[in-house]
Structures are given as C-alpha cells and as structure tokens.
C-alpha cells in the first residue's frame, strides 16, 4: 500500500494500463503538455508520446465519437472530457452510439471506451459548471457508470474499466482529487463493478452514497455517534450501474431505516431509484419512509452562501436521520 492523492491514483491506473496494453491510448482537451485540467495526466505525454497521449481541439462530440470509432477498430481509448458539464455536448455519441452499438448490431461490434470526466459543484463555478449528472448516465442501458469515493477504489475501478469490453463513464468528483488514501501497489489490483463497500458499520440507520456524498455520509455518521449516540452503516456504491442493491437491502434489513445522499437534484434523481428499490425489496423491514438528501431544485448559484445552501451537507443527513426516529 502507498498513500496517495486521488488524482495520482487515477494517473497511476492509466499509466499501468498503458504499459500493460499497447491498445490503450488517451485523448482529450489539454491532457498533454498542460497535464489535464485536474492534473490527472501530468507526465504521461513525456512517458508515452503524443500518439498515445493526444491533445485534442475543444470538440467534445468529435473526440468522443472518434473514441467510439477507434474502439470499433480494436483500440481501447480513454477520452477525458474536461468536466461532466461538457459531456452534454457529446451526448449523441455517448447515448446514441457508444451505449447502443453492441445491441443494435446484434452483438457484432462492441465499444471498449473509457470516458473520464470531473463532476460536482462547490467551487463557485455557477450553473453551467457545477453539474452532477451521474444518475443521468446510469439511466442508459449499455453504459457502466463508475463513481469512486476513495483513491484506492479509484485506481482499481479505473484499471477494471480499461479491461471492460463496453463503454464506461468514469466520474470523478472535483472535491476529491486532492484527498488522500491507501492505494494497493499490485498492478493487477482490480475492483469489480457492481460491488458496493460498507465503509462503516452501525445498527440504527443505513446511509447510502456514491462519489462525494459518501464522505458526507461518513461525517454525518461521526456526528450521529458523537452527538446522538446513534450508529450508522455507510455504504459506498462505487458503481451506480451496475448497482449492488443486495448490499443495501441486507443493511436495511438490519437497520430498518435508510437515507440516500447525492449531490444531484432530488427531482427525478438517482436517489429516487434506490429508494424505490428499497421499497420494492425491503418494504416490510422499514420503520420509516426512505429519506433522500440531495441538491436543491435550482440551477447552481454562484454566490457562496447560496451554493452551500443548494448542496446537501452532513447536517442535512443528520437532520434526516433524526426525523425518521
């Protein structure tokens, strides 16, 4: 194990996979000389050269589509979309092409494409640069959606993404790039998709999150223990498609209460999917309705106080738990 920051774990995963398999190459806006907007590709241009670490124009639809094409021809491209906000410009390629070609062709072709993108608000970037669209991508059959919360998982999940014969949307929360954690040194360390991890065990309530919200759940669990004498299961979904509901259900059957936490808007959001599945599969075990703690239903404001109010917090999670006792 080595302690490293999330961005370094992500870079290490790409580096190891490029060394392992010459079909892997990277392209994206400013991933070369600049080193990536969030510095995840720093140094890779020097190590692998401009053919395999390819700077592109600002042309999201073009480069994602080019990734699909190169994948059809046997390569394993990683396209970095600078932020998830710009993925909206490339949705035609992601949704109409990458996610559907295997099915539509009757299984003749497949698209081993990794799309990395940075997500989340909290940096006063305003409404167009603060999206959390994980749940939107999870909506589409044919996509795998990965949302790591810790550096070790980020490395293992990203390496696993490069082995996947289908398109993977790998979403990194901007607030987590600088966080540190233990990362396995083993170059064959993979984290399988569809396996949630219980990062903290308790008996009074189940807190479910992914990406940044896992950390809010964790801090809320600290507060519940310190201030209210309550203990919580904290479940990190790690991938939201495929979704490991079995782990969530097992936990709810012990705690009888659940709060789902995400940055995305509550209305029509992914937390609603999890809440519905808990209702379908564990209704008789519930002592209270499943609660959702999510972003407020507004375009993200620029003002710092307003933005803070629009995002879910650990205090909101604690409040939701106390309301269901």
């Amino acid at each position: 194990m080595t302690e490293m920051r999330m961005r370094d774990a992500i870079r290490e995963a790409m580096r190891e996979e490029m060394l392992r398999d010459e079909r892997v190459f990277l392209m994206g806006e400013d991933i070369g000389a600049y080193g990536g907007s969030y510095a995840c590709t720093r140094g890779l241009l020097d190590e692998f050269g401009p053919e395999r670490v390819r700077d592109t124009p600002i042309s999201e639809s073009g480069i994602v589509g080019a990734g699909v094409g190169a994948a059809l021809a046997g390569f394993i491209p990683m396209v970095e979309i600078m932020t998830i906000n710009f993925s909206l410009v490339a949705l035609d390629q992601i949704v109409n092409n990458a996610s559907k070609l295997h099915y539509m062709s009757g299984g003749q072709v497949n698209v081993p494409l990794v799309l990395r993108m940075a997500s989340g608000g909290g940096s006063q970037l305003g409404a167009t640069h603060s999206h959390s669209l994980e749940g939107m991508f999870a909506h589409f059959p044919g996509l795998t959606v990965v949302c790591p919360s810790f550096p070790g998982d980020a490395k293992g999940l990203l390496k696993r993404s490069f082995r996947e014969p289908n398109p993977v949307v790998f979403i990194e929360h901007t607030a987590l790039y600088g966080t540190r954690g233990e990362v396995p040194d083993d170059t064959d360390h993979l984290v399988e998709f569809g396996q949630a991890r219980t990062v903290r065990s308790g008996k009074d309530v189940t807190l479910v999150g992914y990406s940044g919200s896992v950390h809010q759940c964790y801090r809320a669990a600290d507060m519940l223990a310190a201030e209210h004498g309550l203990t919580a299961d904290v479940i990190d979904l790690r991938t939201i498609r495929p979704l490991d509901m079995s782990s969530v259900i097992r936990s709810v059957q012990r705690t009888n209460r659940a709060v789902v936490v995400e940055d995305d808007w509550k209305f029509g959001g992914f937390a609603g999917e999890i809440a519905a599945q808990i209702m379908e599969r564990a209704f008789d075990w519930l002592d209270a309705p499943v609660a959702r703690v999510a972003g407020k239903d507004v375009p993200m404001p620029y003002n710092r106080n307003l933005e803070y109010a629009a995002l879910p917090s650990e205090e909101d999670v604690v409040e939701a738990v106390l309301a269901m006792l």
């Binding site: 589509g65 190169a70 059809l72």
Partner: peptide
C-alpha cells in the same frame, strides 16, 4: 452522428 466515428 457517424461522422466522428469515421474520424476514429
């Protein structure tokens, strides 16, 4: 929609 694929 297939034109970027041709590029790839």
């Amino acid at each position: 929609g297939h034109m970027p694929i041709a590029t790839g």
